[in-house]
């Protein structure tokens, strides 16, 4: 028996919005420690890794490890039927071929449930090696989304250059060149507005805008985003999900032809 309950459907809606542009379907691996999802996008350029800890749920029970392959388009249709403040419960029997998603209004006067067919997906888990990153940048998630959106107008690629002074995002194309520099913030009143750079050595890497923009669909989950970079290894873009876990996106760099 698997049962996981969250106080607000809005969190699940935001999580789904953060992955459904990259993934058509995905397997949710459930165990007593929580829910994990790891999947590559169709073109195998990026990897999504979602961790939801069991202690972050209002109720969590998982008697036996369970892998639930879900069509994310179908899940989106179901979540559209929930009000943001509704409680949401996911339930499945051991070895079931369906999952039930139930919404309850705050006053318990409306209860709806949706049974969704599960899929058998070919799971390909990748081993992610530990990396000592050269640069780790923490910045407001909205600012990162804005920069990715703005630079995508100018080029398919964005160059991220990080030094101890700051981080520079550049794009160059037919229109010309765009550069956006962010300096490390001195003192800020609000932690969520800070730009913080931890640098071992400077790094310059090139990434496809289209994927960065897909990652920023996670912006509503978190006030801050963390970018971890190292020469010739995938970028890690991490959004914390408060009291519940995190979503990490890995993006392979572009290299000169």
């Amino acid at each position: 028996m698997f049962e996981a309950r969250l106080g607000q459907a809005t969190i699940l809606k935001k999580i789904l919005d953060a992955i459904k542009d990259l993934l058509n379907e995905a397997t949710f691996d459930c165990s007593d420690s929580g829910i994990q999802l790891q999947a590559m996008d169709n073109s195998h350029v990026s990897l999504v890794s979602l961790t939801l800890r069991s202690d972050g749920f209002d109720k969590f029970r998982c008697d036996r490890n369970l892998s639930m392959g879900m069509n994310l388009g179908s899940m989106a249709k179901i979540l559209k039927c929930a009000n943001n403040e509704d409680n949401v419960t996911m339930k499945a029997q051991d070895n079931a071929d369906t999952v039930t998603i139930m919404f309850e209004s705050a006053n318990q006067e409306k209860v709806s449930d949706y049974e969704m067919k599960l899929m058998n997906l070919d799971q390909e888990h990748l081993g992610i090696p530990e990396t000592d990153f050269s640069c780790v940048v923490r910045m407001p998630a909205m600012e990162f989304a804005r920069i990715c959106r703005d630079l995508a107008q100018f080029s398919e690629s964005v160059v991220i250059c990080c030094t101890k002074e700051g981080v520079k995002f550049s794009a160059s194309g037919d229109v010309g060149t765009a550069n956006i520099k962010l300096a490390q913030t001195g003192s800020v009143d609000k932690e969520e507005e800070a730009v913080i750079i931890e640098m071992q050595e400077p790094v310059t890497l090139t990434f496809a805008c289209r994927y960065l923009n897909a990652f920023t669909k996670a912006t509503p989950l978190s006030t801050q985003v963390q970018l971890s970079m190292c020469a010739d290894v995938p970028l890690v873009v991490e959004y914390a999900i408060k009291d519940l876990g995190h979503i990490r996106y890995y993006l392979a760099p572009k290299i000169e032809d």
């Binding site: 390909e124 888990h125 081993g127 392979a252």
Partner: peptide
């Protein structure tokens, strides 16, 4: 050139 993520992370 866009590299594939599988060229960095090996299949388990």
């Amino acid at each position: 050139m866009q590299k594939s993520i599988t060229s960095f992370f090996k299949r388990k």
